[in-house]
Nucleic acid binder design. Structure first.
Lengths: 217, 217
DNA sequence: ATGAATCCTGACCGATCGGTCAGCTTTGGG
DNA sequence: CCCAAAGCTGACCGATCGGTCAGGATTCAT
């Protein structure tokens, strides 16, 4: 029945991909309970029974998507050290998160939905990884502050600030589009919003260049 | 059947309040489709039939809660002008949004869920009000920049930054709590996070005191 | 060609969904 | 005390939910 160790057949790969895309879209929009396999099947253009044939159950499909999202997320800023330039790292952090919001908005919304319902499917197990990720980066930020490379701001609040500000352009895209008369957010919008966030956050944290000069025009 | 113009009976007031509280909690957690009247009734300690007796339908209950949230939201920063102090206004903006996240986190999550599913219930009608709200404040920010009271940042992106950063503490409370080892966010957490946001955002936008001095210790 | 493995699907299951309704009890002004 | 209005609820409705299953269709190495 299960032969995940053998190379997948093309049929399985093709259908699973279509199902994952459709499921991510529906889960992102309606959450776990609000999504129905029927709706996912319709979006994928596949009979409901066939969806269940491939993914086993709604729960398993949802968890698979969640893990895929978390995996993609954890790749970011995989190696930073105290010796890096704070401005460069913060900018890279903001830009890469902004990139994720632009290229994978539905993943972001899927994750947001999971948190909104109390994170019942990734409680502890995956929060543990995120905790380590945050604490490692926070420690670097703290040492930068000690070395006078930036203001002594709370590094954890800083991380949450960057998360929230960047994810906003994926999770609340509907609101942004509705308020600013746009049809959709395009490349230029993400670029300009990224510029704004880099400028305000880096300056707001009093980040200085390595030579000690204040980053000011 | 409906006598909304007459003074409500105490029974009606009492039960509606219990239903609204329970419904806000369930809708905030599971979204519109994912919420069930059965679950709302159970949370309110009232039979399902009785819930429908009071609120009419799931749709009406949901819209009522959405409108109540929007109304509470639109009260903020009701009167600001170009002659106000930018630092004071931005701080008041951040503090009041932070206060909303602290005192009405479920309202915030209800709204977030509505946006995530594409805002099907407040499309246009209520986005119009928000658009006017944003444009009016953005115009003030723009004039402050022209007068050299702050950097010429995009005022709309600035508003979205403050929205996202403050709402994060309500919408993603589960994640914050899970990552930072806390049991829940308390008064001190909101105070310190608010301090952080005021400091970083006001400094990051280059806001100056009216006398022209840079806001720096 | 053939047989095993995989792919695929309509029919069906019990549970739950939002909503209706008949008919009960409780309340309060006259 | 009386009775209309309001409050209240169990039973029930058709639709949809997640999931199962028997069995046909397709594929492919031999």
């Amino acid at each position: 029945m299960d032969n995940h160790d053998l190379p997948e057949t093309t049929a399985r790969e093709r259908n699973e991909q279509r199902i994952f895309e459709a499921a991510e879209s529906v889960f992102a929009r309606h959450g776990y309970r609000g999504a129905s396999i029927q709706a996912i099947a319709a979006a994928a253009g596949i009979p409901k029974s066939n969806v269940l044939y491939y993914v086993g159950s709604k729960r398993r499909l949802y968890v698979t998507l969640l893990e895929r999202t978390m995996w993609r997320w954890n790749e970011m800023l995989s190696d930073i050290s105290v010796d890096d330039d704070p401005a460069e790292v913060l900018e890279a952090f903001i830009r890469s998160k902004m990139q994720l919001s632009q290229t994978h908005p539905r993943s972001s919304r899927l994750f947001a939905n999971e948190i909104l319902q109390g994170a019942p499917f990734l409680k502890e197990s995956l929060f543990g990884e995120m905790r380590e990720w945050v604490e490692a980066r926070a420690e670097v930020f703290r040492q930068w502050a000690e070395r006078g490379l930036m203001d002594p701001v709370d590094p954890v609040w800083l991380i949450f600030l960057i998360w929230s500000a960047t994810q906003h352009y994926a999770d609340f895209e509907t609101q942004i589009v509705g308020i600013t008369h746009r049809d959709k957010l395009d490349e230029r919008d993400f670029q300009s919003a990224g510029d704004f966030l880099c400028q305000v956050i880096i300056k707001g944290c009093g980040v200085r260049r390595r030579d000690g000069a204040v980053r000011e025009p």
